[in-house]
Nucleic acid binder design. Structure first.
Lengths: 192, 192
DNA sequence: CTCGTGTCGTAACAGCTGTTACGGTAACAG
DNA sequence: CTGTTACCGTAACAGCTGTTACGACACGAG
């Protein structure tokens, strides 16, 4: 029996319930059912429901951060890195669409949870700082700080819109919007 | 006893609970307490909880739409109208900040509610079409459709970020971001 | 083998949930 | 005044919630 990966298993079950059934049905019994176990294992692994949500939230943050760092390391130029990092924040496939829904659920749950809102703020400020560094390295035409805020709010809003209405915001629309904005900010290399 | 305004009174109570206590504590008893009545009045006015949420959701949509239409009618030019309409979508004061939180709560609740997600899509598409008309009238440098998507996703994302972390996204940051983006899209009049 | 320990399923608990049924009461018609 | 009707507070119901207590089982130590 895996003792190590069960925290992660339960956190992924939290994601599944959150993405498919929403925040209101995010109960311990639903999580246990999604994980294929009983509530006994859940309560044995976590002291209470809030701790389970915190772990799932932090694991989501670390997962996306690892993916972003890999993309950033694999990019050939600062501008390519910026585009790749922003690109993965959109809702372009079932994976990232579900992630956006889960992220939104956690944010809505954070309204009444002091720990969740603190985790959101820490993660969001780190994300903003990371994109800010990439923007500065990419040398935009305008103020890098304002450009950074414009880009991250746009990406997150687009992911939320696309998750809630995939037909109205298909991948082509999202990528066209992102590339157009990057170009308007002078963050794309001239074609040639 | 007001028979007419009680639906609106209860819907505003729904907003209050949603903004201050979050989606998880949005119970009929909490709504009744916020409205200063008992559950009997709530269940007499609405057949069930979902109908109450639907009414509150639709009232929020109509409220913002009326405000947007007034701003649009009062603007002197298409570009001024566009900026005013986008400006009111940001979270710049307690009023609009709470609205953003409530909007986000409804969107999170819509994951498991077929009616709410349908209402969101209808409202969002109407909003997108409205901004699209303003963008076209304002004659941007780039593709109006893509510019429209960029602007509405950015505004909604900024409102969500600001509602969740007001210190990191003060009004000056949001407005600077919006004006910078409008300028980058060629949607601001030259200063003179 | 026995024993202890960690793991986890089962069952129960109190509390809260949406919803329903019922009773009182105010307003209004005659 | 009486009777009717709509309104709404009170109380209850079954069901679900998070959490706890307890027992079964596996497994390694001695």
């Amino acid at each position: 029996m895996p003792r190590e990966g069960q925290g992660e298993l339960l956190s992924r079950a939290v994601w599944d319930v959150l993405a498919q059934q929403g925040l209101e049905r995010l109960t311990i019994r639903a999580v246990a059912a999604a994980a294929g176990c009983t509530t006994g294992l859940v309560m044995h692994r976590f002291p209470n429901r809030r701790a389970l949500l915190r772990h799932a939230r932090q694991l989501l943050h670390e997962t996306t951060r690892a993916r972003v760092e890999a993309l950033e390391a694999a990019a050939g130029s600062p501008r390519a890195a910026l585009r790749a990092v922003l690109h993965q924040g959109l809702a372009l496939d079932p994976q990232t669409t579900a992630e956006s829904t889960v992220w939104l659920g956690f944010l809505a749950a954070a309204v009444a949870d002091e720990d969740l809102i603190a985790m959101h703020r820490a993660g969001n400020r780190a994300w903003r700082a990371r994109v800010g560094r990439l923007v500065e390295a990419a040398a935009p035409r305008q103020d890098p700080a304002a450009v950074t805020v414009a880009l991250i709010t746009m990406v997150e809003g687009a992911a939320a819109f696309a998750a809630a209405d995939p037909e109205a915001y298909p991948p082509a629309v999202q990528t066209a919007m992102l590339d157009l904005t990057l170009d308007a900010f002078g963050l794309t290399d001239p074609v040639g």
